[in-house]
Amino acid sequence: MKKNVSGCSVEEAMRVIGGRWRLLLVSYLLDGSKRFNELRRDMPDISQRVLTLELRALEEAGLIVRTVYPEVPPRVEYRLSDDGERLRPVVEVVKTFGLWLKARPEPQDAE
């Protein structure tokens, strides 16, 4: 992950949860643990490679926990850590904002 250059707390938060997929991944994990392919089904437009990279970044940040079960074939589940649960209100605010954006009239072009 890139490093925070301004020292701003908003930049620090966006460094960890920014981008197209990370907060969306967190939102899907708010309901409980999921396997890799469940997340792929929830997010059909994400590539396998990008999903893997985003999950690793969230795990590195301490926001999700990856559990590998000793089975054949191995079963891997992802869940939010206690720190990741702190994102619940953030997801709710972003969801509310998204609903507002979808409901508002399209801005008119200035002529």
Rank of each mutant, 00 (worst) to 15 (best):
R66V: 03
L53N: 14
K2E: 13
A13H: 09
G32L: 07
L25F: 05
R15N: 14
V94H: 04
V76D: 08
D82L: 08
P74Q: 05
W21A: 07
K95A: 09
R22F: 07
L63N: 09
P73C: 03
E85W: 02
C8A: 11
F36S: 11
C8R: 12
E12M: 07
R22L: 06
R79L: 06
D83I: 13
W100L: 15
L25K: 00
L55F: 04
D45V: 11
L24N: 10
L53V: 08
G32P: 02
A13M: 14
R75W: 01
V90I: 15
R40N: 10
F36H: 07
L53M: 14
G32V: 05
L30T: 00
A57C: 02
N37F: 05
P44L: 04
E12D: 13
P74C: 00
R15C: 13
M14D: 07
M43Y: 00
T96H: 15
M1K: 12
L24P: 02
D31G: 09
R79M: 07
V26D: 06
I17L: 15
D82T: 03
S81H: 06
V5G: 09
T67S: 08
R41N: 13
V68K: 15
E85S: 09
R40Y: 06
G19N: 08
F36K: 07
V16Q: 10
R66A: 00
G18T: 06
V5F: 07
E92W: 04
V50N: 09
R35Y: 03
G62R: 06
W21C: 02
A61N: 04
Q48D: 15
Y69A: 06
L30E: 05
R75S: 03
P89D: 02
V91L: 01
L101S: 12
Q108T: 08
V50L: 14
V91K: 03
L24C: 09
G7D: 06
D82W: 02
D83N: 11
L23A: 05
V91M: 00
P74E: 02
L29A: 04
L80D: 04
R22Y: 01
R104N: 11
L58E: 09
R104W: 09
D109C: 04
W100G: 12
T96K: 15
R66T: 11
K34L: 13
R75A: 03
E54K: 14
R20V: 06
S6P: 00
D109H: 09
L80H: 00
M1P: 12
Y69H: 14
V72N: 13
L80A: 01
L23K: 00
D83R: 15
V50A: 08
V65H: 07
L23E: 02
K3Y: 07
N37Y: 12
P74A: 05
Q108F: 01
Y28P: 01
K102M: 15
E106F: 13
L23Q: 05
L39S: 03
V76W: 05
V5D: 10
D42C: 14
L55V: 03
L101Q: 14
P89G: 00
A103T: 10
L39D: 05
V93R: 09
E85F: 06
G32M: 01
K3A: 11
T52L: 14
L87F: 11
L30Q: 04
G98M: 14
L101Y: 10
E106K: 14
V90C: 08
R35G: 12
D42M: 14
P105E: 15
S47F: 02
E111C: 04
V72P: 07
A61G: 11
V65I: 13
R40T: 08
R86N: 10
L87P: 03
